[in-house]
């Protein structure tokens, strides 16, 4: 049974339509890569899934429930954990407080999150705004895990980071993949890293799903056609 499904989803920013028919399905425990060039609707799709943007047509279902009309906090409470683009932490709060603010009952607690992301443990009492970009990104991942999600959505989690930090984050994501059955929807441009963790992939082109299937089925022709610059 699918955990998340989008069928024929359309969405607009004001009068500008951005999504013209997105279809995707993600099962429990699956890692799905959402791919496409810049501006093809990946982040908008994430905003629709997390209810930060209401879709116009089509259907978005999560854990068997229709998400239409539900506010973002309700989607988060249902188990949608978002690591947003751009490392957005709560300024003025410490690392520990940033984690505490998101805490919901479940298997992910402070100890487990800081075990997965040791840098957060080292910086626990430090103001989140004073962290480096990579550390803030780890904090965003930790904060999403503290909500005890059924589905973790990583939107460009390693974008703009130094290679060492990027590697550290991918190792943490791979660790998540191995240790838990947490479903993950990941958006990223690094094919090699996605290949390590993703089971399936969906490619968007101009706001439409143009290809979906097993990640191993991504041929060089497909990547050249839909992901090349």
């Amino acid at each position: 049974m699918s955990l998340l499904s989008l069928s024929g989803v359309t969405a607009s920013y004001g009068p500008t339509q951005v999504l013209f028919g997105v279809d995707l399905t993600l099962r429990e425990g699956e890692v799905l890569a959402l791919m496409g060039r810049n501006g093809m609707g990946k982040t908008t799709t994430v905003r629709v899934i997390t209810r930060l943007l209401a879709h116009r047509d089509g259907e978005v279902r999560f854990a068997g429930a229709d998400l239409a009309g539900k506010p973002p906090y309700r989607a988060a409470q249902m188990g949608l954990g978002l690591v947003p683009e751009g490392r957005r932490c709560f300024r003025g709060l410490t690392v520990g407080e940033n984690l505490l603010v998101a805490a919901r009952p479940g298997e992910w607690d402070m100890a487990r999150v800081t075990a997965l992301l040791p840098r957060l443990g080292e910086r626990f009492g430090q103001d989140a705004a004073s962290l480096s970009g990579g550390e803030q990104q780890m904090l965003a991942i930790g904060r999403a895990l503290m909500t005890n999600p059924r589905l973790l959505i990583l939107d460009e989690a390693t974008e703009g980071l130094a290679p060492v930090l990027r590697q550290e984050i991918w190792t943490a994501i791979a660790g998540l993949r191995q240790e838990t059955r947490l479903a993950i929807l990941v958006i990223d441009k690094t094919l090699d890293e996605l290949r390590r963790i993703a089971d399936n992939a969906v490619i968007l082109e101009r706001g439409r799903t143009v290809w979906s299937g097993a990640f191993s089925g991504l041929t060089p022709e497909l990547t050249d056609r839909y992901l090349g610059v």
């Binding site: 930060l52 973002p72 906090y73 947003p84 957005r88 998101a102 503290m146």
Partner: peptide, 12 residues
């Protein structure tokens, strides 16, 4: 600080 950010961690 940010309503959308708060909502995505389940805060009403």
């Amino acid at each position: 600080q940010n309503v959308a950010r708060a909502e995505t961690v389940g805060i009403n």
